[in-house]
Amino acid sequence: MNDIALIKEGNERAFEAMYHCYHEQLYFYVLKQTGSQFLAEEVVQQTFLKCWTSRMQLPEDVPVTAILLQIAGSSLIDLLRKKATERKAMQQLATTASEDHLLHNIQEKELTIHIHHAINSLPPVRRQVFRLSRENGLTYAQIADELSISVKTVESHITKAIKHLRKRLAVSPLFLLLLHHPFLF
Rank of each mutant, 00 (worst) to 15 (best):
I77R: 14
L178F: 08
A97S: 12
Y19C: 03
L76N: 01
A141G: 07
L93D: 06
R168P: 02
L122H: 03
L165V: 03
I71Q: 01
V154M: 04
E42C: 03
L76F: 04
I7Q: 02
I143R: 09
L58S: 10
L132P: 00
I4Y: 02
L122P: 00
V154R: 06
N120K: 12
L176P: 00
L103Y: 06
L169F: 10
S148Q: 12
Q128A: 07
H114I: 09
E60C: 12
E108V: 13
Q37I: 05
L184E: 01
T139Y: 02
H180I: 11
R81M: 09
F183N: 00
L80Q: 14
T112F: 06
I77W: 05
L179F: 03
L80N: 07
K8T: 03
F185R: 04
A5L: 15
Q70N: 10
M18C: 13
N2Q: 08
Q46C: 15
M1A: 04
Q91R: 13
L39C: 00
A161K: 03
S172M: 06
A118E: 05
F185A: 04
L178Y: 06
G10M: 02
L49D: 06
H20W: 06
L39W: 09
L103H: 13
K163L: 12
E99H: 07
L69T: 09
L26M: 13
H104F: 07
G73S: 10
F130E: 01
L79C: 08
L26S: 04
G137E: 05
M1R: 13
E42Q: 07
E16Y: 11
D78S: 11
D145H: 08
R166T: 11
R127V: 05
V151W: 05
L80I: 15
Q92C: 06
L93A: 10
L93K: 07
V30N: 05
E12F: 14
E41S: 13
D3S: 09
Q142E: 14
L68I: 10
L76T: 04
Q25E: 08
C51M: 14
Y22R: 02
D100T: 08
Q25N: 06
A144H: 06
F48V: 03
S74C: 07
C21G: 07
K152P: 04
S74A: 05
S133Q: 10
N2E: 07
S172V: 00
C21P: 09
I4T: 01
V154P: 08
